[in-house]
Nucleic acid binder design. Sequence first.
DNA 1: GTAGCATGGTAAG
DNA 2: TTACCCTGCTACG
Length: 284
Amino acid sequence: MPEGHTLHRLADEITDVFGGALVASGSPQGRFAESAARIDGARLIDADAWGKQLFVRFEGDRFVHVHLGLYGTFDIRRDVAEVPLPVGQVRWRLVRTDGASGTASYGDLRGPTACALVTDTERQAVVARIGPDPLRADADPDRAWARISRSSVAIGALVMDQSVLAGVGNVYRAEVLFRHRIHPLRPGRSLRVSQWRSIWDDLVVLMREGVRTGRIDTVRPEHTPEAMGRSPRVDDHGGEVYVYRRAGMACHVCGAGVRTEVLNARNSFWCPRCQPVFRSRAAR
DNA sequence: GTAGCATGGTAAG
DNA sequence: TTACCCTGCTACG
C-alpha cells in the first residue's frame, strides 16, 4: 500500500520501535546478505522518508535506502516472546531484543524495488532528484509549480512524476484532481497558480490524515457512506474515495459514470461532468 | 486453485 | 514499449 503516507508512517514506526537500539540485521533471502551483515549489531538511529523513499539511519552515517515499489511490504511486530522463522522471501530482517523483558521486536521487508546500504552522500543525491513532498514541513510547493506552469504535459502525469512532486501515487492523483474539479489530461500550464495552491494545501491535509490512519480517505463529510446512505467501499487500501478504481460506477456527487484511461502507464480515473477538460464560459 | 491485476519505478530493447 | 521485481488481494471456475 505504498504511497507517500505509507512510507512516512513506516519511518515513524521504525524510529519508535528500533530507534536508539542495537539491532540484529540479516537477509534470510540472501539478496541483501553482505550489506545486512555490515550493520548487524550496529545502533539504529532513526528512519525518515522523502516521498516514497525511506532511509533507515545507522551509526557512522550509514543508511539503508528502501523503496517498496508496487507491492513491497515492511511488517513490524512488537514485543513477541519468540521471533518466528522467516516466511517467504524476506530481503531484510531487523531484530531488537529487549533483555529486561525477554521479548523482541522485529521487522520483515519483502518484495522491495530497492534495498541498499548507502552513504550520506548517496542519500542526499536521491533526495536531490525528487520534488517537494507535501508531508515534509520544509517542502516548497513553488518548486513544483515552476515545473507544472511551464509544462504541456498532462497534470495527471505531472502530479505522479516524483521529480515534480514526491509521494503522490495513483490513488491520491485521481482523488485530488477530482476534489479540485480538474481533468487529468489538462496540460500543466493550463492551471492557474491558485488552483495549484489549493491542490497542494489539500494534499498536505489528506496525506497527513493518511499517515495518521494508514488509509487513503478522500471523501468530504457530506459524501461519506453514512451521509449518503450508500454501502461502504470494500478495497485493499480500505479508504473511501470518489473515483479511484470506480470506472463505470456513478459519481458520488453528480451521478455520471466514472471514466478511466491509461495515463503514465497507470489507470487514471475521473468524472466527465465534475472534471471538464475546459472550464465552461459560464464558470469563468 | 489460480489467473490477473495493483497504491511503483527502473532498466533493457 | 516491455520485462521485471516476485507480494497479496479479488474474481472466477
